[in-house]
Design a protein around this nucleic acid. Structure first.
Lengths: 339, 339
DNA sequence: ATCTATTACGAAAACGGTTTCGTGTTGATA
DNA sequence: TATCAACACGAAACCGTTTTCGTAATAGAT
């Protein structure tokens, strides 16, 4: 086992001082050509690499960014991470991922762990429990310490920081409008409870599109599922009672599941009933029929978040100006609606 | 912006030495009750938290583990990460995720970045490019430095380290056996090229089961896709030419896609033709019909890997003994085969 | 009164770097 | 010959901890 070599080792071996070695390796003008060459050759020979931790301590910069998300087994978050990772890596940063698993306490603990010097900034999406509680003190503490934070997707207005969201309302609006244009008359919405900011916005888009049209809103056409868990019977009863000819679902799973239900009862998709979901994941792509969705471009979101964060980390000025970037969703047309 | 408080700050404020503060906070016997109470109260008041970086430098322990995987937008890896994260977190470790994106160079760069003090050990799954090249020098260097490594799923025998795999051959065997027991006669395999160690093992299980049976192996019933990308026509031609009554696919996507193809040509699943895939992801669960799969228990794999790694990190002895844990896959029966 | 043990604390080294500043040596200049 | 700048390097502080070791003060024993 050949252990890592340090500046001190090189200095001892070459009978120069540590400072000289450090400078020589940085090609400082202060050091003679001779010495520099000697040191650099020696360093290369023994594969010297500076210790990141020591550098972090000195510079008060870790080159790590902390990502705190509710869940990783979820296509959207996964693509966001990929976007963050790619961008951050290109700028020399590493990504520390922590999962809150939708728990407020875990979110707090994770942030506390990371905030004590392990990272230069946070990128995060709030857990549902945090959003329900409305308690954002852990975020306040972090921002007050001067640690930059970028909130994405599941955000709150109670914290002053950079934010990246997609225009979920627009997404709901676009999808609903599409149905209206296609002459659908009974347009249903399957949503979750409003505490999830995204569901809320998507529902608003749905309501807006309908109230702008001659159809108007009929609240009995809206099903709010109490949790993200599938409750098969609720959906089944709802679809049988309301007999919609178009359904907008706030996620993929509701949509795919609903499609299976209506297919079993003999309806044809998209002619008898059309579907649009949210999140352009594998499910939508490989569903039968493939599902038209409002795509959120998670990877782009990750990139944008990472860029905002790193720019802030590396900016000298202590500007207290925060921006909210709004990304536009797009409709990915597949077989579950008429073309 | 209230900046973080350090031991030095407390020492100055309370007019004691830094050492005293440090000891007082650790409830050392050396310090008087009075002083301890004073220091602890002050620390709590100003919300003192020790700086992780400084501690890391001192202890030569970062409490970080590096996870290097080929891809994160992939259900299996995602569940493994979750398993790692949960377990590691419970033991006070953070997880730094790096993506090789199936590239050898990125894998090398990522490992080098992390190996310079940022982490205490690696958990990784090889990129396909690395497996094709067969170049494992980056791994050798790391292990020679005494950094513990746990390899999972996509492993190599050329490196001495702990390993965790699922018995992919057994998985292929179990699935094929199932088909044989159900009286299927034309059992096909859709696989990828053999450089992926997992595909290879799964194929071996398929071959083994068939050669043990009266059916025997017919190589024309095996389709090897040159890459992970979907090549729709290859599969279509293959299925039309061979007319199998059962298909084993080395992943979900091949399976779901194939099911759609045969359904379009009027075949009934599972009676006319049955399907089994690998990877128990969302696709299998929500496919129509839902797909029977060989489940790999990624979360368990992550947990086991993390446990092995952390145990090694925290073990005093320099035992050079490595183990390979083999996890057994299980068959998750769904609608794509007869019950 | 002297010695010893205990208590309670501080100084300093160490982790592995970076960086500022001081200084001995050299050669050129006045 | 005295002065001085340029050169090349080293000492030391610093980042924020932990930990070893030394020691002043006090109390108890003889």
């Amino acid at each position: 086992m050949k252990t890592k070599i340090t500046l001190k080792d090189i200095a001892r071996e070459l009978e120069v001082s540590i400072s000289t070695v450090s400078k020589a390796l940085k090609n400082s003008e202060e050091i003679s050509r001779d010495t520099k060459e000697k040191v650099q050759a020696f360093a290369k020979l023994y594969n010297y690499k500076p210790n990141n931790i020591a550098i972090s301590l000195k510079n008060k910069r870790t080159k790590n960014i902390g990502v705190v998300i509710p869940d990783i087994v979820h296509h959207f978050f996964t693509t966001v991470i990929r976007g963050i990772e790619k961008y951050a890596n290109a700028r020399g940063y590493n990504v520390i991922v922590c999962l809150s698993e939708e728990s407020f306490d875990k979110e707090v603990i994770n942030m506390e762990m990371l905030a004590n010097g392990s990272i230069d900034g946070f990128i995060m999406s709030l857990s549902s429990e945090t959003q329900q509680k409305g308690d954002y003190n852990h975020l306040k503490e972090v921002t007050e310490q001067g640690i930059p934070v970028v909130l994405f997707d599941r955000i709150t207005n109670e914290i002053d920081c950079d934010k990246v969201v997609i225009d979920d309302e627009l997404g709901g609006y676009m999808a609903t409008k599409k149905f209206i244009e296609q002459g659908k008359k009974r347009i249903a919405l399957i949503s979750t409870d409003d505490y999830l900011s995204v569901s809320k916005a998507r529902s608003m888009g749905y309501h807006k599109a309908l109230s702008e049209s001659k159809l108007g809103v009929d609240e009995s056409m809206v099903l709010k599922m109490p949790s993200m868990e599938m409750d098969e019977n609720r959906i089944k009863e709802f679809l049988e009672a309301q007999k919609p000819d178009a359904v907008l679902c706030v996620n993929e799973i509701f949509a795919v599941y609903s499609m299976r239900l209506v297919q079993k009862s003999g309806l044809k998709i998209p002619d008898d009933i059309s579907f649009i979901g949210f999140t352009d994941g594998v499910l939508s792509k490989y569903a039968n029929p493939s599902l038209t969705v409002v795509a959120q471009h998670g990877e782009k979101m990750g990139e944008v978040s990472a860029k905002m964060l790193i720019d802030k980390i590396e900016s000298e000025e202590e500007e207290e100006t925060y921006q909210t970037k709004i990304l536009e969703p797009t409709l990915v047309i597949r077989e579950s609606i008429n073309h």
